[in-house]
Design a binder for these strands. Structure first.
Length: 581
RNA sequence: GCACCCAUAGCUCAGCUGGAUAGAGCGCUGCCCUCCGAAGGCAGAGGCCUCAGGUUCGAAUCCUGAUGGGUGCGCCA
């Protein structure tokens, strides 16, 4: 139930009538006609731009169209007033019972109020995190993880069939480095003195991996050359690292549907198959790249490489898929991986990358465009850097100084709910300041707290009402006499609730889950405002002890707010609080 | 040199497929608890939406250019 689409349908039907009556010419396109909440609530409940967008094609003055449309709209039961304003806006006020019924509808629908069929069950793949399996996740990964996860949930809520996927980069040189590092820890476990040189990972998290390896293999690898142990330790170590990463993700409340191994692409002909597909389209050739201008690498020398003609699909330069020694570049398995996603039949793909991969966007889009003949859209969302603060001062992460902040550190210190909400109260492409002290502050300055507080207040009302012997189950509240909800402050809350389904669609369409977080803040604000009005106007308090019928109606409104907050927090992966501590 | 992202109140940020007098929090001023949680609310002050052009009934929003900041640019992934 989306009141805005309902009223838009009404506007369109009235426009059709005007065409039939000859007031408007034939052949008009109504696609740009919108029905939205007006910026200033004083203007009314909903506004349409119909007269203005049709003015030009109909060759009529906007106000002339608006006047006629206003009269016709006023004929509908739902419309209390329809007035022309400004350059040709048409402001509508709906009858109070529309808002009252909405409350009952929310309680009946519960979590499904706001769900949309916009996605029409289309299959969409969201790839996120995809951190190298060489160590625990750190704060930077946390943002991508939270963003991708919330986006996936949002799309699911909007009616898409979502697959959450993690690409394991277990095929490159970095896992050899991991294997060598684990080997050193393994020797250490056997009492040997070892030195961690450049090009190895000195992290202490590998100590237990070395010990585990000893427990499994004894001294079989001690003193043996790399050729004996490298492949096996690589598998062993990446397995352990993925266990670690999976548990990190679990701590953050992230659960993937698919873990896709880069290694599985090698030696199975899948990279070759993907490249063949491009070759068949005439997009692969042998050639020499121009050196980058301005910042020329000192050891640059022209070399012939196998190149992908990505420029034909919007990229700036063609990209190498093979190194000069004939081995694959990192781009080749990525092409194969996305080829696999395309052939798995997804209708749309989303990749969530860190901002440092920004330079990778065009070539990846070019690859998917080429592989799918432009049929499978790929959206790449970049999450900007997280700047850490402690006590108001910037906090630099450094592996050497031991100030490396892991995902686990963050979750342990501030909790899952706070971490997720804070990371989502910012657009993905804006940098994020994460202040350990501020996010734990319980004040209006902290949006997590503010939204949770609103939910907790409703729970508090329900507890109190129950003590008074009122029946405040959703089933009972749904049947409350909602005509008792008539004060403007109360209707304003209901009107905010009505925006929820619309907001879900906008957020899903733009792939911007942060909109949900901001909406919840606004909704919480409406509730807090109404609550405080009860200080002076006692008739606005949710519980009217002497009047159960009125109380139930008011509590129904409060409960509806809690339902929507709960749904919204659910999308963000945050648990609504029953009470604040 | 090139590409991508960003620029809105003193600070941190929202702003819907272009729409009316550009919003919120913090900070600043002043109010509101015999009352379901004041961990909240109300009101006030504070803006040439970086700049210059363009598109049109209408631009913070779209286009072009400039300026400032961030990220990246074959043989790492």
């Amino acid at each position: 139930m989306n009141l805005f689409t309902d009223i838009r349908a009404l506007v369109i039907s009235k426009l059709d009538e005007m065409v039939q009556a000859g007031t408007l010419p034939d052949g008009l396109n109504f696609a740009n006609v919108t029905v939205e909440p007006p910026r200033d609530p004083l203007h009314g409940d909903m506004a349409t731009n119909a007269a203005m967008v049709l003015s030009k094609p109909a060759k009529m003055k906007p106000r002339d169209i608006a006047e006629v449309l206003a009269d016709k709209l006023a004929e509908d039961d739902r419309i209390r007033t329809a007035e022309v304003a400004g350059p040709g806006f048409l402001n509508m006020r709906l009858t109070a019972d529309i808002w009252q019924n909405l409350i009952s509808h929310v309680l009946g629908a519960g979590d499904s109020f706001g769900r949309s069929d916009m996605g029409q069950g289309k299959r969409i793949n969201v790839e996120y995190v995809s951190a190298n399996p060489t160590g625990p996740l750190h704060v930077g990964h946390t943002r991508g993880a939270v963003f991708g996860d919330a986006l996936a949930s949002l799309l699911d809520y909007a009616g898409y069939d979502v697959t959450r996927e993690y690409y394991i980069n277990d095929g490159g040189a970095q896992v050899d480095v991991l294997a060598r590092s684990v080997y050193l820890r393994y020797l250490e476990a056997h009492g040997r003195q070892v030195a961690f040189e450049d090009g190895t990972y000195p992290g202490e998290y590998l100590i237990e991996v070395g010990e585990a390896l000893k427990a499994e293999k004894g001294d079989a690898y001690v003193g043996q050359p790399e050729s004996v142990w490298l492949a096996e330790i690589r598998d062993f170590a990446t397995g352990k690292m993925m266990d670690l990463i999976r548990s990190d993700l679990a701590a953050l409340g992230v659960k993937m549907d698919v873990f896709y191994s880069e290694k599985s692409l090698y030696g199975t002909g899948r990279i070759e198959a993907a490249l063949k597909s491009l070759e068949d389209k005439g997009l692969i050739y042998e050639g020499v790249l121009e050196p980058p201008k301005g910042k020329k690498p000192e050891d640059w020398e022209p070399r012939e490489q196998t190149l992908f003609k990505s420029t034909e699909h919007g990229d700036d330069v063609d990209r190498p898929v093979k190194k000069s020694d004939g081995s694959w570049t990192y781009f080749a398995p990525d092409i194969a991986y996305h080829y696999d996603k395309v052939t798995r039949g997804f209708d749309a793909l989303i990749d969530v990358f860190g901002a440092d991969h920004g330079g990778y966007v065009k070539r990846m889009k070019a690859a998917v465009s080429a592989l799918s003949d432009g049929q499978t859209p790929l959206d790449i969302k970049l999450t900007q850097l997280v700047k850490l603060y402690k006590n108001g001062a910037p906090f630099k992460m450094s592996k050497r100084a031991g100030t490396f902040v892991t995902l686990r550190d963050v979750v342990d210190q501030v909790g899952l709910d706070v971490t997720r909400f804070v990371m989502l109260t910012r657009k993905n492409d804006a940098p994020l300041d994460f202040d350990f002290d501020k996010v734990l502050e319980q004040s209006k300055d902290n949006p997590v707290f503010y939204v949770q507080y609103a939910h907790a207040r409703v729970c508090s009302v329900l507890r109190k009402a129950t003590e008074l012997g009122f029946d405040v189950t959703d089933a009972e509240l749904q049947n409350a006499d909602l005509s008792k909800i008539a004060h403007d402050s109360e209707l304003a809350v209901a009107q905010k609730l009505a925006e929820w389904p619309r907001l879900v669609e906008i957020a899903a369409r733009t792939h911007e889950p942060h909109r949900v977080a901001f909406f919840l803040y606004e909704l919480a604000s409406e509730l807090h405002a109404l609550w405080n009005k009860g200080n002076e106007l006692t008739e606005l308090r949710f519980i009217q002890e002497e009047d159960q019928a009125t109380s139930q109606a008011k509590i129904a409104l409060a409960r509806a707010v809690a339902v929507v907050i709960s749904s919204g927090l659910g999308i963000l992966g945050v648990t609504p609080a029953e009470e604040m501590r």
